[in-house]
Write a protein that binds this DNA or RNA. Structure first.
Length: 590
RNA sequence: GGAUCUGUAGCUCAAUUGGAUAGAGCACUUGGCUUCGAACCAAGGGGUCGGGGGUUCGAGUCCCUCCAGGUCCA
């Protein structure tokens, strides 16, 4: 009988059961089971230390008492030892590890094991969200890549995920754009390179409408016409949005992203009146010099008593709606229409204050109206800067376009695959280059803690050595190569007759690493930080590479061969599943 | 000015959220392909975790205070 998929949960339950008769659970004992340094064991429980400290007991003696109360079956599966001031270490025994490796043998079984975390829940993930009529640049990469990884991890852990691209498709910039369009539009360019042309027209429109000029008044009139539903301007605006979406989709396809909805700011344009009404009616919002604002007095930063008040501005004094009102309407729509249990918004850290105020307001408003409140998460990430810590610019002053970055990555990958494997047909080398190049760019983002600022360098984004996508893809390609040579499909190695528990040091290290996949997924999805999964996969690929060098798989001894093929099959399964969770594609040959 | 985030090896980053001897990659030095793919593996040097103080069995992580930088709000 194999251990459960989540071994840490299993140990947690067992430790609680042992601690309960001692009266510890009633007094707040938490086992605190974690993945351990392999030198100490596979898992460790630290809970006795914190508890003994609170209760002024001897931690080591307490840990011993708990261990004495553990069920005998646990002793059969693990070597259990005490260490230091009261750590309880668990080292899995070979037979138990083998049974676990045999049991979780397909992507479906892995997902079933992982799906308890968000089972039955609906999550709306708001990510990418570029402004229409502008090209995406490298700054837009993080939201798209991190958001997609989160979507896949949430799906894997049981949630129904709704991908919503909250486009910046409404605002004052359209006045200047229409102004420029009506004077200088180049229809041919609009057909062939629509976003580049729209950017050109916006720049011309902006330059031609300086402050306090009659030209600016004209641009404002264009905006008002659009907002009032003028047929010609609305048609133009639609044309701009559709052209933008088509261009975005090219990028999204390369990144493996497909949105379920593109509900941009314009979609909520007619939904803000209800927000004004309900916030006023519940007494949350108040009039302040003609504007409608919400204070949060319990937070010094957002209190009316702040020296410089910083209220949540729901409606400006001139009557215009801003991000606050559309974002409130968005939260309501996602709750009512999508029945969201969780909402995740992925943006850079500069919007922290805005979302803190937004969520505070939503919580009070929903409570007052008795609306069900979903979990609200603002997933932030650091800025993309150059080596000097400044916002990223290329030499000519423009930002690096996302399209150009991906093209460059693919080009370099093509050169490399051509150098390494000149005999592969060109078409296949092109396909490989797409996967390797784009994967390297995605992985460069996903392998780093999203909170840190992102120092952009071509060298780093396009590095193919070390903790990079190509390293992981290479491990996968080598495993596929072994199965090709063995003449069996990886899936059939699941039931490879005659396989036995891992024996050599490299086999054992690899097998024990595989056991921690559930913890890596859980940690990454609980914290909404994909880099925890990236790091795990990198370490797993490293353990595989060591095993691959030390232990030959295709040997004559059938038992040895079966044992190692089983490890290859499981490593392949976890690496492919894990990389797909991060949003990367994988290869059988590279 | 207020708020907020960041500071770890020469460089780029980790550290399971208070746990055991702070780990990787790049770069550098050395060794390994007649053996399943060397885009690899094995080994080595490199650290006052920005400075100082505090909390405790235990601090890169928490609290205070300086220093440097990013960002937001006027």
């Amino acid at each position: 009988m194999a251990l459960p998929f989540h071994v840490t949960s299993h140990l947690d339950t067992a430790l609680r059961r042992a601690a309960d008769p001692l009266g510890l659970v009633a007094r707040g004992f938490e086992p605190e089971v974690r993945v351990a340094d392999p030198a100490h064991g596979d898992f460790q429980a630290n809970g006795a230390l914190a508890f003994a400290k609170r209760e002024k007991q001897n931690p080591r003696a307490l840990a011993q008492q708990i261990v004495d109360g553990l069920e005998p079956s646990l002793q059969a599966d693990f070597e259990i030892t005490l260490a230091g001031p009261g750590f309880i270490n668990f080292r899995i025994k070979p037979a138990a590890l083998f049974a676990w490796l045999c049991a979780y043998d397909t992507a479906q079984h892995l997902q079933t094991g992982a799906a308890s975390a968000h089972a039955g829940q609906t999550w709306v993930v708001d990510y990418s969200s570029p402004n229409t009529a502008k090209q995406m640049h490298v700054g837009h990469l993080r939201s798209a890549v991190i958001g997609e990884a989160l979507c896949r991890m949430l799906t894997f852990t049981g949630a129904k995920v709704i991908r919503d691209n909250h486009l910046g498709d409404w605002g004052t910039q359209f006045g200047k754009l229409i102004y420029g369009y009506k004077r200088w539009a180049d229809d041919a360019a609009l057909m062939s390179e629509p976003i580049e042309e729209l950017e050109r027209l916006y720049k011309l429109g902006h330059a031609a409408t300086p402050d306090d000029s009659p030209e600016l008044d004209e641009a404002r009139r264009e905006l008002v016409k659009l907002q009032n539903g003028d047929a010609a301007n609305v048609a133009l605006w639609k044309q701009f949005s559709e052209a933008s979406l088509r261009a975005f989709d090219e990028i999204y396809q390369r990144l493996g992203i497909r949105f379920d909805y593109n509900l941009g700011e314009s979609f909520y344009n007619d939904k803000v009146d209800r927000i004004y009404r309900e916030l006023a009616e519940t007494g949350l919002a108040e009039d302040s010099a003609g504007a409608l604002v919400v204070f949060h007095d319990e937070h010094p930063r957002f209190s009316r008593n702040n020296e410089r008040p910083n209220p949540f501005m729901v409606r400006k004094a001139d009557g215009a709606s801003g991000y606050a009102s559309t974002d409130l309407a968005t939260a309501l729509y996602r709750t009512e229409h999508f029945k969201a249990d969780g909402i995740v918004v992925v943006t850079d850290f500069r919007q922290t204050d805005h979302f803190e105020q937004l969520f505070l307001t939503v919580k009070k408003w929903f409570a007052a109206k008795n609306y069900r409140l979903p979990e609200l998460h603002h997933v932030t990430f650091g800025a993309v800067t150059d080596e000097a810590g400044k916002a990223l610019k290329t030499r000519d002053g423009g930002t690096i376009k996302l399209k150009a970055l991906l093209d460059e990555a693919v080009e370099r990958a093509f050169a490399l695959v051509t150098e390494k494997n000149p005999d592969l047909p060109e078409a296949e080398r092109r396909t490989i280059a797409q996967t390797v190049g784009v994967g390297a760019v995605q992985y460069a983002d996903l392998s780093q803690n999203r909170s840190s600022n992102y120092v952009f360098s071509w060298e780093k984004m396009l590095s193919f050595e070390g903790n990079t996508a190509p390293y992981l893809l290479y491990a996968i390609a080598r495993i596929h190569s072994i199965f090709r040579k063995a003449g069996v499909a990886p899936a059939t190695a699941a039931s490879e007759a005659g396989a036995t528990p891992p024996e050599t040091p490299t086999e054992t290290t690899l097998g024990r690493k595989l056991l921690k996949f559930p913890d890596a997924v859980r940690l990454a999805s609980d914290t909404l930080r994909p880099h925890h999964l990236s790091l795990y996969l990198y370490e797993l690929a490293g353990d595989y590479s060591s095993f691959n060098s030390a232990d030959k798989v295709l040997v004559d001894d059938p038992a040895l061969r079966a044992r190692r093929l089983l490890l290859c099959a499981r490593t392949l399964l976890v690496l492919e599943t894990g990389l797909h969770l991060l949003g990367l594609r994988t290869l059988e040959r590279m």
